[in-house]
Design a protein around this nucleic acid. Structure first.
Lengths: 172, 172
DNA sequence: GCGGCGATCTTGACGCCGTAAAGTATCTTG
DNA sequence: CAAGATACTTTACGGCGTCAAGATCGCCGC
């Protein structure tokens, strides 16, 4: 993606974007921020969803991965910016704190809220698993397995079932 | 990273690399391939390592993440190429099949070798977790937690303990 | 009503990039 | 030693991110 191409598509000169963003990176940051907000909203919506047959954590996991799979380019921009700044988005930076949301879901899933270290480790585990699966799910070599299981959703759920924290109920 | 910069560093003209690689991408593919071979060797070495206090799967997980942390640029090249071709490296493409290695370790860890679907799901889960953690572990916000646990290795181990398949012994 | 001003855009330029074509030097081999 | 392969250079093209210098236009206070 080139800034000049964006300007062309918008029907303006190549230098026009510089009156709205300091440079290309700042444009991408703005896009990423909107993306995190959108993902945060989807996670919030997923958590109050009724009739789900997932455990509360698996639900946010599947929602996270589905978001990444439905907006692959956006998700890439989002995560690449995080990697550049070496930090996950939190409320301090203006977005709605998807990371906090994971911790909340973990407490709801039965983790001890007073065990701060355990909670943090579980949050990292959950986010790692979701992000990792989001990146793995796009590989073609899993298509047969997805077909065999009856679709991508079942595949995601099957994978999450192999990860302790996503299993039904409080941690072993 | 620019091809011209590589040529400059090697003391040759900008066009010289084109006599060894079709284009920039092919150079990166070659680098990635060497990377996967190196990682495969490290995983093999880790598995025969004596005196380890990890479960067999956690050992390969920690080794995988440590490799990614020690060679972040290389790991990025490796994974980015995989994402482009939408496939993990396997023996068919000439390298030593890191993916097969994970499946082998899973069987050694006690999974039923005849349950092909379960084995495949577990392999995806393990690889997702390792890749996800490799990408998360670089975030600065976890530094306090790492310090509190006594180093990055303990941090990694703590996270893996929260993921079912990495826990000691056969799956729950 | 009008002068100025800020916002928004254009033009043109700079240096860097990936890549291609054509030419040159060096090394190998019959 | 001739001939061809190998490794490299030079030159060039178009695209990129970015910047400085204007141009245009709508709005506000006088």
């Amino acid at each position: 993606m080139s800034l000049r191409a964006v300007a062309r598509e918008a029907g303006v000169s190549p230098a026009a974007p510089y009156h709205h963003f300091k440079d290309k990176n700042e444009l991408l940051e703005a896009i990423a921020e909107q993306g995190w907000d959108l993902l945060g909203d989807m996670l919030a919506k997923a958590r109050i969803e009724s009739g789900s047959n997932y455990g509360p954590l698996a639900l946010v996991g599947v929602t996270y991965v589905r978001f990444a799979r439905e907006h692959p380019a956006l998700y890439r921009v989002m995560y690449d910016r995080s990697r550049d700044r070496e930090a996950l988005p939190d409320r301090q930076h203006g977005h709605n704190g998807a990371y906090d949301r994971v911790r909340t879901a973990l407490v709801q899933a039965g983790l001890d809220p007073t065990d701060l270290v355990g909670l943090e480790l579980a949050a990292v585990a959950a986010w790692s698993a979701a992000h990792g699966l989001a990146e793995m799910a796009c590989f073609k070599q899993f298509q047969p397995l997805k077909d065999q299981l009856g679709g991508e959703e079942a595949f995601l759920r099957g994978v999450f079932e192999h990860m302790g924290i996503f299993a039904e109920g409080p941690k072993r």
